[in-house]
Write a protein that binds this DNA or RNA. Structure first.
Lengths: 154, 154
DNA sequence: ATTAGATCATTAACATGTTAAGCGAAGGGA
DNA sequence: TCCCTTCGCTTAACATGTTAATGATCTAAT
């Protein structure tokens, strides 16, 4: 660490207390705990999110899936190819609307999630234990409130 | 929106209240307000962070800069080339340690930041006004607490 | 002085983020 | 029906995220 003078140290503290960076750091810190599992599963964080969202629905079109997993449409297009090639999802055209693509978890995808779920849950429980369940719930509530207040409700 | 049955709706709510996704969504929501400015400046979010961190220090080596801007070393290497080519930063070798690279803001970089600072500050004030200063401070405090509790203090 | 190990930075390879453009399909009037 | 617009998704192009490997330098111990 380079020795900071008083002025620059204060300024640096100011940057650190900026919403975008704080949220980024928090996310990195949390993901560091999941990364070893994801690496063992040979799957990316985004692919994991897609599978988990699909596991909670029957079949979704790509738009809903993108929103649910917080992934942009172009990224999702690429991810779906990867997951389909790996046999974890099934993709088909919507018969009633030729523009839409319907996606659902394949049996293999369901098995994949079922096998990984206990480890994932265990990690989340560790986080809960370290942070405190109350504190974590409060944080999630405040994040929700932030999103609601900042969302452009066109 | 596809009609969710009661069960899947509850499950979906569960995913949404997951720390990694909540933090991701919050960050996206906040950044949506800064993106138009960054686009007008023809600069990426990461490049902007690098410049701001440099503005708060004299000269930093790449490692400290990477930590300060929350950017991984490989990404920073590429970003430094871009910013140097654009004349916004100055890069030189550390004389006392040939491994280190020292980076500082160039005069042009300082002018660039000075010109953009008012707009940036205005956006942040809008966010403060919408969220509430108290609520925002609380949120930042809780995020800090989260990071401290989850950090591996090897 | 030498050498093994650690450190700092870069490069490589692949996946995703981001914006813009493109394409086929659906919808809504004239 | 035709035309125009909108919608859903994909592709393109470039920047960054992520992990592993490489290169160069420093450090410490011999």
């Amino acid at each position: 660490m380079t020795k900071p003078r008083a002025a620059s140290a204060a300024a640096l503290a100011q940057t650190r207390r900026t919403l975008p960076i704080a949220l980024l750091r928090a996310r990195e810190t949390v993901m560091d705990r999941f990364r070893p599992l994801l690496h063992r599963l040979d799957i990316t964080e985004q692919q994991w999110r897609v599978l988990r969202v699909l596991d909670e629905a029957e079949a979704m079109d790509a738009s809903d899936l993108a929103k649910g997993a917080a992934i942009l449409a172009p990224s999702l297009s690429r991810i779906l190819k990867t997951l389909e090639a790996r046999g974890l999802i099934e993709v088909r055209k919507d018969q009633s609307d030729g523009r839409r693509t319907l996606i659902n978890l394949s049996p293999a995808g369901g098995a994949f999630l079922a096998e990984a779920a206990p480890e994932s849950a265990k990690i989340y429980e560790e986080i809960e234990a370290l942070v405190g369940k109350d504190r974590l719930e409060t944080l999630l509530d405040e994040i929700d409130a932030l999103i609601v207040r900042l969302s452009d409700q066109k």
